[in-house]
């Protein structure tokens, strides 16, 4: 199963690298966004409990999250292309486990998201947020786990979609609010109570906690921090739910009505 998943993931990655506009677009957009917004807000920013953190620094993991989120989710859009182009049918008739089909797509999406996010990580030391090797390792773990969850969620919704514009529309309606209310744009500590409640159930905010942690705390501290551990747990559950849900969708075969 792993071999099949790897072969399918490699295909995703090769395809992605052969489309330079996809590579450039997904890397350039969040960087520009971050530079413009970040420099605009910088002076007036003061995060509670985070003295000496500039807005550029605060916003940095949020942008990283946004990149990862969008790259992961929209990598699943290729299912719709695969179906249209006929490639999917040859995968479906192969004697491969249906989970391998899901994992192939998800791992492909994760690797694509990783390239972009890792390039972006190079900026961290220049922002005065140097990362030690163990922290970098934890950061990568955070990337992979949250990216897999979102890629699997994209897979789950894209599976039954017939057009990529439909998928785009639905995902934007879902994602933008989730991202904005995740604490990526502004701290939610002094937000009204309802927003707080949204944050607790919002998987994007848990992913953000997971990714932001390694920038501010040492790995040992993180493993003692219940807020971070909770985020880790939620993200793992999120991964499992959408991987299994997607597999169930792939497994379902179109069925004739009772005669």
């Amino acid at each position: 199963m792993i071999r099949v998943a790897f072969a399918l993931a490699r295909r995703e990655f090769v395809r992605f690298m052969r489309q330079p506009h996809r590579v450039i677009g997904t890397v350039a957009q969040p960087i520009l966004f971050w530079l413009f917004l970040g420099s605009g807000f910088n002076a007036s920013f003061h995060a509670p409990g985070m003295n000496g953190v500039s807005y550029l620094q605060y916003f940095y993991p949020g942008v990283m999250l946004m990149m990862m989120l969008f790259a992961s989710i929209f990598s699943s859009i290729t299912i719709i292309e695969d179906r249209d182009a006929g490639f999917l049918q040859s995968v479906l008739v192969a004697p491969v486990s249906r989970m391998a089909i899901v994992l192939g797509k998800v791992m492909g999406g994760v690797s694509i998201a990783m390239v972009q996010t890792l390039i972006f990580t190079i900026a961290a030391p220049f922002l005065g947020m140097p990362l030690g090797l163990p922290s970098l390792g934890l950061l990568i773990l955070a990337y992979v786990l949250s990216s897999a969850g979102f890629a699997a969620m994209g897979f789950f919704f894209a599976w039954t979609m017939r057009t990529s514009s439909g998928f785009h529309a639905i995902m934007m309606v879902f994602l933008m609010p989730l991202w904005m209310l995740s604490g990526a744009l502004f701290p939610l500590e002094n937000a009204p109570g309802w927003l707080h409640a949204v944050m607790i159930i919002n998987p994007v905010s848990h992913a953000l906690v997971l990714m932001r942690g390694p920038f501010y705390s040492a790995p040992a501290q993180l493993f003692a921090d219940h807020r971070w551990l909770l985020a880790l747990g939620v993200t793992l559950v999120w991964d499992a739910v959408f991987l299994l849900g997607s597999m169930a969708r792939v497994q379902r075969r179109e069925k004739g009505a009772p005669a």
Partner: peptide, 18 residues
């Protein structure tokens, strides 16, 4: 039912992996 963006060899290889 092949991937048009991959080469002939890559398509065959992928099929062998499946």
């Amino acid at each position: 039912a092949v991937d048009k963006h991959l080469t002939v060899g890559e398509n065959l290889r992928l099929h062998a992996d499946l």
